[in-house]
Simulated assay, not measured.
Amino acid sequence: MKKIIKLQSIGIILFSMLFTMSCSDDNNSPSTSVLNIEEAKLLDFPLFAIEPTGIEIVQPEIVDNKEVTYGEIKITLPSTITSLENISASITSKELNLSKFSISPSNSVNLSFEDGKVHVFTISAATGDQEALLHYNVSIIKEVAPVPETLKITGFTFEKSKNPSLPNDITITKTVEDDGGIDKIYLFVPLGTDFTDLVPTIAYDGTTLYYTQENNLNTNVEFPTVDTSFDLKYPKPLYLTVKDRNGDNVRTTNVIVDVVNPVRIETVSVTSPDATEGTSEYFPGVTKWVNQGNHKINFQKATIYKDISPVITPTTNVITVDRALPSGGLIPGESANVNVRVSQYFPEGTYKTTAVFYTRIYHDFDSDDLFEPVEVTVTANIIK
Rank of each mutant, 00 (worst) to 15 (best):
I4K: 06
Q8K: 05
S9H: 02
S22R: 11
D25T: 08
N28Y: 15
P30S: 09
V34M: 06
E38N: 15
A40Q: 08
L42A: 11
F45M: 10
F48Y: 15
A49G: 08
E51F: 06
I62D: 10
D64N: 15
K66A: 14
E67R: 15
G71E: 07
E72K: 13
E72I: 15
I73C: 12
I75G: 13
L77V: 13
I81C: 09
T82D: 14
N86Q: 11
A89T: 01
S93R: 03
L98R: 12
S99F: 15
S112E: 10
G116P: 13
V120F: 06
S124H: 09
S124N: 09
A125E: 15
T127S: 15
G128I: 09
L134G: 04
N137I: 00
V138H: 09
I140Y: 01
E143R: 05
E143N: 07
A145M: 03
E149K: 04
G155L: 03
N163L: 10
N163M: 11
T171K: 11
K174T: 11
K174I: 07
D178G: 10
G181I: 04
G181Q: 14
K184V: 05
Y186L: 02
V189Q: 02
F195W: 02
T196Y: 04
D197W: 00
T208W: 00
Y210F: 04
Y210G: 09
Q213I: 01
D227M: 01
T228F: 00
T228K: 00
T228R: 00
F230D: 02
K233D: 06
P235Y: 10
P237M: 03
K243V: 09
R245P: 00
D248S: 10
V250H: 01
V257N: 02
V257K: 07
N261L: 09
P262E: 07
V263N: 00
I265W: 15
T267Q: 10
S269W: 01
T276K: 14
G278S: 08
F283K: 14
W289M: 08
W289L: 10
N291W: 07
K301T: 12
T303M: 09
K306Q: 12
P310S: 12
T320Y: 04
D322C: 04
S327A: 11
S327R: 06
G328C: 11
P332K: 14
G333W: 06
V340L: 13
R341H: 05
V342N: 05
S343D: 13
F346E: 03
Y351P: 14
K352W: 12
V356H: 11
V356D: 03
Y358C: 14
T359Q: 04
Y362H: 13
D364C: 12
D364F: 08
I382S: 14
